[in-house]
Design a protein around this nucleic acid. Structure first.
Length: 416
RNA sequence: GGAGGAGUGGCAGAGUGGUCGAUUGCGGCGGUCUUGAAAACCGUUGUGCCUGCGAAGGCACCGUGGGUUCAAAUCCUACCUCCUCCGCCA
């Protein structure tokens, strides 16, 4: 969330920044009004408490007790009022998105996202490349009928070399990131509401999440960003140890509400998919440079796999709710003749840190400051597999295994 | 799932109704001493919110919520987490 003092003291500047997003500025005024109400009530409450506190320290004569009793009742009522007002103020604050970074390009939608650079040249094939799902079914490594039977739409069953390829990709990614200094972690895939609030999925995006309905308050994670970022929730980190870098493989679960009709074929948009995620905790002054490095670390996987891709910068209007700056990596899909997102790398600055209470101390005795958090896919595994099925497809319907993966597949060079 | 025990400041650990934001020790920071360091000694050392240009001041926080009371770290209650034992289980 944003710093409430910043909103109070510079409402015009905050509005100007938020107006670059697709955000209803009236919500900001709502917040300011609620904030003022709460502050007034809280000040009155503090004054009453001060009176009772002083009175309670004197000897308890009957008169004093009678007077205190009255005061005490007044305080109780005021406490309820103030608590309700604070709740309202906080809730409104949680619905205000992050401010776009100064370097985030202006623009209203994905159509306005400028391309930053391209890597690799899409191979010119002298045959028609089949879509990843079509070739996957033909090769017997993807099965959508079985998935529909046991789970429903937007699920897939991997078989044989397909299952093995998915696993190989996970290992390649984790091994590579470990060598780049990321600590591998394997977190739970079920988390509580506090964690979801800390990273910004709740309260606004509840309908995008799968939730357990047995009253245990647990949600299936939509990304490893949630458990890994919340690893340090309500902590004060040692500034000397920053940046902290984590890499995690987890399955991810998304309802994909509101994406009806989009990517209904194939494994591009599934309710459950695998992803390796990179997460960093940095000092504020380092986060911009760390975003560049994190993006490069994700790109490295695509380069090792020799998959053509491009990097785009998300324009302010296309930016995720909690992000201040985001680069998307888009891999080439020959059958669709287009680049599709395979990684999203973001600098959240102190937005998640403030929600989740993630702070650090520059040195012993220094005041705690909010850390900056960043994360990015390194990469979405299913989409990587899909990209391989298309980019490495041969005229005879076989698929060559990228060289870097072969050691993970017992030397397998071709799926046929 | 059952039976017990415990959650207090960076850590350890006192505190069982008012004078407690909290004794003390360790650690941290500053200083004295020393050529320097160690030791010793002295001082200092939590977080958040609000008012204020500032100096300063006010309030809250002893796992979390609710309750009792004029007054709660302290009593009651529910929940969470951890530990020990039993059961069950991959």
């Amino acid at each position: 969330m944003l710093d409430q003092k910043l909103i109070r003291e510079n409402p015009a500047a905050v509005k100007a920044a938020l107006s670059k997003r697709n955000f209803d500025l009236a919500l900001l005024d709502d917040f300011l009004a609620a904030d003022q109400k709460w502050k007034t009530a809280q000040t009155e409450l503090d004054n009453l408490r001060a009176r009772l506190k002083a009175a309670s320290k004197t000897k308890p004569t009957p008169e004093i007790i009678a007077a205190n009793k009255k005061l005490s009742e007044e305080i109780k009522q005021k406490e309820k009022d103030a608590a309700a007002l604070e709740e309202e103020q906080k809730m409104k604050l949680l619905f205000i998105p992050n401010l776009p970074d100064a370097t985030t390009p202006d623009g209203r939608s994905a159509a306005d996202n400028p391309e930053i650079h391209r890597w690799g040249e899409p191979e010119q094939k002298d045959f028609t490349v089949l879509a990843h799902d079509e070739i996957g079914v033909k090769l017997g490594i993807l099965n959508f009928d079985e998935a529909a039977k046991i789970s429903g739409a937007r699920f897939v069953v991997y078989h044989g070399a397909g299952a093995r390829l998915e696993r190989a990709l996970i290992n390649l990614m984790l091994d590579t990131h470990a060598q780049s200094g990321y600590q591998e972690v394997m977190p739970p895939a079920l988390v509580n509401a506090k964690a979801m609030t800390g990273t910004g999925q709740l309260p606004k995006f509840q309908e995008d999440l799968f939730a357990c309905d047995k009253g245990d308050g647990l949600y299936l994670i939509p990304t490893a960003e949630v458990p890994v970022t919340n690893l340090h929730r309500e902590e004060i980190l040692d500034g000397a140890r920053l940046p902290l870098k984590y890499a995690a493989y987890t399955p991810c679960f998304r309802r994909e509400a509101g994406s009806y009709g989009k990517d209904t074929r194939g494994i591009i948009r599934q309710h459950q998919f695998n992803k390796v995620e990179l997460v960093k905790f940095t000092r504020p002054e380092d986060s911009a440079a760390e975003l560049e490095k994190l993006t490069a670390d994700a790109e490295k996987i695509l380069q090792m796999l020799k998959l053509p891709y491009r990097a785009v910068a998300l324009s302010a209007g296309d930016l995720g709710f909690s992000s201040s700056k985001t680069y998307d990596l888009e891999v080439w899909f020959p059958a669709q003749n287009t680049y599709r997102e395979i990684s999203s790398c973001s600098n959240y600055k102190d937005y998640q840190a403030r929600r989740a209470g993630i702070r650090f101390r520059r040195e012993a005795g220094a005041k705690p400051e909010f850390a900056h958090t960043l994360n990015g896919s390194g990469l979405a595994v299913g989409r990587t597999l899909a990209a391989i099925l298309e980019n490495y497809q041969n005229a005879d319907g076989s698929v060559t295994v990228p060289e870097v993966l072969r050691p993970y597949l017992g030397g397998l060079a071709k799926i046929e």
